[in-house]
Design a protein around this nucleic acid. Structure first.
Lengths: 118, 118
DNA sequence: ACAACATATGCCGGTCGCCGATATATATAG
DNA sequence: CTATATATATCGGCGACCGGCATATGTTGT
């Protein structure tokens, strides 16, 4: 189990599970909503990631159910996953803050329109 | 050029270049500082990423110099790179905010200590 | 004099997460 | 009776990242 930083699809998966358990296909729709249509998670990514996260113990299968004749597996965020998500958001916040600080504090070197502040 | 979200080493590279131009080895140290020792970028990642970012036009070679008998290549963030970094930080901020909102608004399903708020 | 370390750039093979394509099955809409 | 939405799952390929290696100079320690 590497502690490499999460890639964004994985981060979005954990985020989508942070408030309540959901099933696979529901996660795709939820992530579509979270990202305002910008991220459409593929099933190849989804089920692969779900297997991986289960194996890592970050999520677990909450229950299996049948709705309208269709089988569902409902996943829930496990405690270790909650910790990882919290640590990850915390780390990302500092990186984002640092990036914004630097962009503002920039020592302009690129071509810049005349009249731009020194 | 895919518009897939940046991975963290790449994000940190652009961040480290956001305020002023730096050379390769200096970037490693800068990233070490930004992440407070948590991320030690490998040279394999660095020079590979630098080549890729050059090819994508996100950065450019500002100048080449020799300091204390050692050759340096100084890289600068190009305009497209600045846009990408700005868009990326903006997107990450919304994801982080959403994750934090959901963690707070969680409908607890996991084992939770008695007395925890419903 | 020699070793160890910091500075500095670069390549290569392996790993692993992501993606597109494909497959399967049921319910509903046209 | 076909298309679309719901729902799960697998597979091959791609590409970013990483560890290891190579190379070279300057500095510090013994």
């Amino acid at each position: 189990m590497s502690d490499r930083p999460l890639q964004e699809p994985t981060l979005l998966l954990l985020t989508a599970l942070a408030d309540e358990p959901r099933h696979g296909y529901g996660l795709i729709q939820e992530i579509d909503a979270i990202s305002r249509g910008r991220v459409r998670m593929r099933t190849g990514t989804l089920y692969g990631a779900l297997d991986r996260l289960l194996q890592q113990g970050l999520i677990r299968v909450e229950r299996e159910e049948v709705v309208d004749g269709r089988a569902r597996k409902v996943y829930a965020l496990a405690e270790p996953g909650r910790s990882v998500l919290a640590a990850e958001t915390e780390r990302l916040r500092t990186v984002v803050a640092e990036a914004e600080r630097r962009m503002a504090a920039r020592r302009a070197t690129a071509t810049r329109p005349k009249g731009a502040l020194a």
